[in-house]
Design a protein around this nucleic acid. Structure first.
Length: 225
DNA sequence: GCCCAGGTGGGTA
DNA sequence: TACCCACATGGG
């Protein structure tokens, strides 16, 4: 039976280091974390390029903007009206509690800071944890739809567990190392994006020798996303 | 045309 | 608590 550690090692052998998060600053990580909600990263790249070109990538500039104006550069990510307000809520939080500098929060207690981030409208568990891990280097494991699908299919997670239960399973099985959590989540995304699809398709999966699906009859577990 | 994409908040029972 | 639904563009 493969372990969480085994899966990481297989993925690392297959894909190599991922170099995440694809952003230049912690603030850009936080912005990207909101923009990528239920959205392909290629669309986020366009939006971030638009934000940079328009001089938007600054907490005070975003917070004070007309939300309809902020929605324009982020249009390629979809949900642009919702996300414009979410970005503004994030920026207001940063201005109120960190002088507009997200780096100023890095030294805070992880659980306390996570609670503060979850208080921002539009920042849920995955977004908060992405900001904590990739933006600020805190040791939290990021759980996403790929994590759930892949590890349920590997039968390392029971179907239907909460975010917190899944996160706890990973954090209990692995050393509390931000660099490991960073690489692991990025590798999971890489597998999910290109191989472990929702529908019964596993094209040339690089870890198929340790995955029970498709089984002898070609069967898959029911899709549940 | 259909499925899918690095979710979240609000409403209802 | 546990479902539903809205939010929306872009690629395969």
């Amino acid at each position: 039976m493969a372990t969480f550690r085994d899966i990481h090692d297989h993925l690392y052998a297959a894909f190599g280091p991922q170099g995440w998060w694809p952003a230049e600053t912690p603030f850009e990580v936080a912005v990207g974390a909101i923009l990528t909600q239920n959205t392909a990263w290629t669309n986020v790249e366009r939006a971030v390029a638009n934000l940079k070109a328009g001089g938007w990538l600054d907490p005070a500039t975003m917070a004070e903007a007309d939300p309809d104006a902020l929605a324009e550069p982020i249009r390629p990510t979809g949900y642009f009206n919702v996300k414009a307000r979410r970005l503004q809520a994030l920026c207001r939080f940063l201005l109120d509690s960190a002088g507009g500098r997200i780096e100023a929060l890095a030294g805070e207690d992880t659980a306390d800071l996570r609670g503060q981030l979850l208080g921002i409208k539009g920042v849920g568990e995955e977004t908060a944890d992405s900001i904590l891990l990739y933006g600020l280097g805190h040791p939290v494991f990021v759980v996403d739809a790929y994590t759930r699908r892949i590890f349920e299919r590997l039968e390392l997670l029971e179907p239907g567990l909460s975010y917190g239960r899944i996160q706890a399973a990973f954090e209990a099985a692995l050393p509390r190392d931000p660099a490991l959590f960073n690489e692991y989540h990025a590798l999971v995304v890489s597998l999910g994006k290109d191989y472990c699809k929702p529908r019964p398709r596993c094209p040339q999966c690089p870890i198929q020798e340790i995955c029970p699906y498709p089984d002898a009859t070609g069967g898959f577990p029911p899709a549940r996303e």
